[in-house]
Design a binder for these strands. Structure first.
Length: 414
RNA sequence: CGGGGGAUAGCGCAGUUGGUUUAGCGCGCAACGUUCGGGACGUUGAGGCCGUGGGUUCAAAUCCCACUCCCCCGACCA
């Protein structure tokens, strides 16, 4: 993509009211536009990153055999009354009446709706087990939105729901999801820890959280250096009795063994082998997709800007052409751009007529993993410079070497 | 939902004891010239209902009242 033709309006000055690194960089790097407090629009660059994260999730979900669906964001309040969660979630649920007086809400989550769907079609153990998932916008009237995408009123979530005949089946489904989650967060380039947690208003008796260590985290875990273990509560290490150190965490995923809370309340029953009527045993599995963007930036940045992991970056590389009146050099750079595009690389070509400093600073800010420089050195020796954003390492390569380098480094750890 | 701060050009800000204000500055934007591998420089120019509504006054960005929105600290957070 050509920078000059892109809607990539990076800011030169620090955005006002951005309280943490990820929020500041996502506004400055033009990933996001703040529509209102806690409400954001994704601009092209941010949307590219979002799509890549979504696709990582899709791929890993599909691998498990889970099937993608898309439920409605608008939900009748009626189904929430069946489980009593219209009261439990009253504070955060955005509700209103339509012209006929029908009570609706903007879905803050989808356990009730998915249960309504499944109970209509499932009547036999032969139809179980299966898992459904979706990637969708959720709405919550947050008391205090903050930190950009970390806590917003409208956000994108991946939610999956498993349906089994018994606890044993649920344990298997849960395990499968748990492992897929570990792969997903690893693929996204996140350092994370998992911990058993309180299911809270979700119900059920077992849940695990996936936590990303970050200074701005709204949750905290307590770490024992000696045993290399995390605990949910302050106090002494349960293994060795030593003092624990608090570490702030962002919750990016939460999986729950729901059991039969929803299936009983909403009457989602099936007949088992012996003809007995039993409630479907459910699990649910959430990932804060948009929140992952913030978490990645919190863990991957320096003074100059974002440093995207290769798996989620908006582009594979930013290509800079310097020496801006040299038309011949520009043509050479364009040929290199086309060469890379034809080899399947996603390149942002900074073809703007801007001073070198502007181009370098923008390239560092938006943080694509490689910066490819065509300038004076190319004229002198036909060598293309490649700078690794993360390490600052610089290489001088000819075209073939450049392609080999990108192949080796971008294709290997996808 | 409590406590505190704020809203002036696209962005970041100054100005506020009422009157030299025709409301400025920096960045960005447009034009020209000089620069040209590290957010360059000069000249010229465009761009404002001073958050909204009501008051007070000869006179309001400036004082008073109400409202809206934003930010911070706390409570809350499947």
């Amino acid at each position: 993509m050509l920078f000059s033709k892109s809607f990539l309006p990076t800011l030169r000055e620090e955005p006002k009211g951005a309280e943490c690194v990820s929020h500041r960089l996502s506004l400055k790097g033009s990933l996001l536009f703040m529509v209102s407090s806690g409400i954001y629009a994704y601009l092209p660059f941010g949307f590219r990153v979002l799509r890549r994260i979504e696709n990582i999730i899709r791929e890993r979900m599909n691998e498990t055999g889970a099937q993608e669906i898309l439920m409605s964001a608008l939900q009748p309040l009626e189904i929430w009354k069946k489980t009593g969660r219209d009261k439990d979630l009253e504070e955060v649920m955005i509700t209103f009446k339509d012209r006929r007086g029908r009570q609706l809400c903007l879905g803050p989550t989808h356990e009730e709706e998915v249960t309504e769907i499944v109970k209509r079609y499932v009547s036999s153990y032969k139809q179980l087990p299966f898992t459904l998932y979706q990637i969708q916008t959720k709405f919550r009237d947050e008391a205090r939105p903050r930190y950009g995408l970390v806590r917003s009123c409208e956000f994108i979530m991946k939610d999956a729901y498993s349906f089994d005949i018994d606890e044993r089946g649920l344990n298997v489904s849960y395990e499968v999801m748990f492992n897929a989650y570990k792969k997903i967060f690893k693929d996204c380039g996140l350092k994370f820890v998992t911990i058993e947690a309180d299911p809270g208003a979700m119900g059920g008796n077992i849940s695990h959280e996936f936590m990303v260590p970050a200074d701005i985290g709204e949750d905290a875990l307590y770490f024992c250096k000696n045993c290399n273990l995390y605990f949910k509560k302050e106090g002494k290490c349960e293994e060795c009795g030593r003092e624990l150190k608090e570490e702030k965490m962002i919750e990016v995923g939460h999986v729950f063994k729901l059991g039969t809370k929803y299936s009983k309340a909403q009457e989602a029953y099936f007949l088992d082998k012996d003809g007995l009527r039993k409630p479907i045993v459910m699990g649910c599995y959430g990932i804060g997709v948009s929140r992952i963007i913030s978490a990645i930036i919190e863990q991957n940045h320096d003074k100059k800007g974002i440093i995207w992991p290769t798996s989620v970056s908006g582009f594979d590389a930013t290509l800079l052409v310097l020496e801006r009146d040299d038309e011949l050099l520009f043509k050479e750079a364009f040929l290199i751009y086309e060469l890379l595009i034809n080899r399947g690389f996603d390149i942002l070509f900074d073809d703007r007529s801007e001073p070198a400093g502007v181009k370098f600073n923008d390239a560092y800010l938006i943080g694509n993993p490689y910066i490819i420089i065509v300038g004076k050195k190319y004229k002198e020796s036909s060598k293309i410079e490649l700078e690794v954003r993360r390490s600052g390492e610089k290489l001088n390569l000819n075209k073939d070497e450049l392609i080999k380098f990108l192949n080796d480094n971008l294709r290997a750890n996808g």
